[in-house]
């Protein structure tokens, strides 16, 4: 009798618990603050963006820095971040199921990801284009030359879809697409000759080429698969969290525009411009309304610098993966690029 009533209570409690669970869901922001650590979904095999450097055994790259910047803005410390390593296939699930709070993983913005996959994108932080890399010895110059061959790429990526569309539009039929679960396997397959071309974002191709022992063995075709803008993403329908992260990314652009760097941060705090003073949380501040510290922008810039500094650290001239920003969409809008922050007041 006792057992039976216990089971009864258990079932009732479970039923209520399950039914009540969805309604009690709070913002990710509250979870992160309570936990004290930001779970950030990123990769470990894309040099320049999200890469576990085997020489230093440290995570580095633009996406990794964006994770650290977010941790600095939300929790005041860039090291309070836990990297959740994902693949092209698992990245959205990791975020929608709450295993990670935000994802920065060279992720191309396109509609189905916001409509069917149910993530919300943050502002675009890098403008890339899809491309092909082949072995120089094969003599391939255009995509049409690849007919009859095998093209390799990573699974669950925008490239996978872009390839299918490109072949359709160019009426190339006898081409095989072989997909692996990570980019290092794709590059290994290209190197061994299993693949006649590797297809992914051009910057990633450039960094793989740069990291190979003999970069001249590989060439990147002029033709490509089209636009590929990268943005971070968070779970859908959580404005509180999304808006905060949206403005932290804008803040990185704005800091570059104003010339606020890690080095001159203390000087800039004395700026006569009331907007800059408010931006840095010297007088009042904007953090409070976002439910974080008023000094969130100052904390972030102190930790990782502005967008330009982050870019130089990961993709600048001193790195093996140098990609010139000048005259490209990746320059700040004041230099004719597309990186633009709305006004802060």
């Amino acid at each position: 009798m006792r057992l039976r009533s216990t089971i009864g209570y258990f079932c009732t409690a479970l039923a209520f618990g399950l039914a009540a669970a969805p309604t009690a869901r709070a913002s990710v922001l509250d979870d992160v603050k309570q936990r004290g650590v930001l779970n950030c979904a990123t990769g470990d095999a894309i040099p320049g963006f999200s890469y576990l450097n085997p020489k230093t055994s440290k995570m580095e790259g633009l996406d990794v820095d964006l994770c650290r910047a977010t941790a600095a803005a939300v929790l005041g410390d860039p090291d309070k971040v836990h990297f959740v390593i994902v693949t092209g296939k698992s990245r959205f699930n990791t975020v929608t199921t709450g295993q990670a709070d935000v994802g920065f993983f060279s992720t191309t913005v396109y509609p189905v990801r916001e409509s069917a996959i149910a993530v919300d994108f943050l502002p675009i932080n890098f403008y890339d284009a899809g491309g092909f890399m082949v072995k120089a010895s094969t003599g391939v110059e255009t995509v049409k030359d690849l007919a009859g061959g095998t093209i390799c790429t990573t699974q669950g990526t925008a490239t996978e879809v872009a390839l299918a569309n490109l072949f359709k539009s160019q009426n190339i039929t006898d081409i095989k697409v072989l997909t692996f679960d990570s980019a290092d396997k794709v590059f290994a397959a290209l190197g061994s000759g299993r693949c006649n071309a590797m297809a992914t974002d051009k910057t990633a191709l450039a960094s793989w080429r740069g990291s190979s022992p003999k970069p001249d063995d590989y060439i990147i075709l002029r033709e490509g698969t089209g636009k590929s803008p990268f943005a971070g993403f968070v779970v859908a329908n959580d404005s509180k969290w999304r808006n905060l992260l949206r403005w932290t990314v804008f803040g990185l652009f704005q800091a570059e525009e104003w010339g606020i760097t890690t080095a001159n941060l203390d000087e800039m705090k004395k700026s006569p411009d009331p907007v800059i003073r408010k931006f840095l949380g010297v007088e009042g501040g904007m953090g409070e309304d976002f439910h974080v510290s008023n000094s969130f922008m100052a904390d972030m810039i102190k930790a990782v610098g502005n967008y330009g500094e982050m870019y130089d650290r990961s993709l600048g001239p001193k790195t093996p993966y140098y990609i010139d920003r000048t005259g490209t969409p990746n320059a700040s809008w004041v230099n004719g690029g597309l990186l633009y922050s709305p006004p802060w007041e």
Binding site: K89, V112, G156, E160
Partner: peptide, 8 residues
Amino acid sequence: GTVANQSG
């Protein structure tokens, strides 16, 4: 996995 990922 690819079907799930590309269709959501």
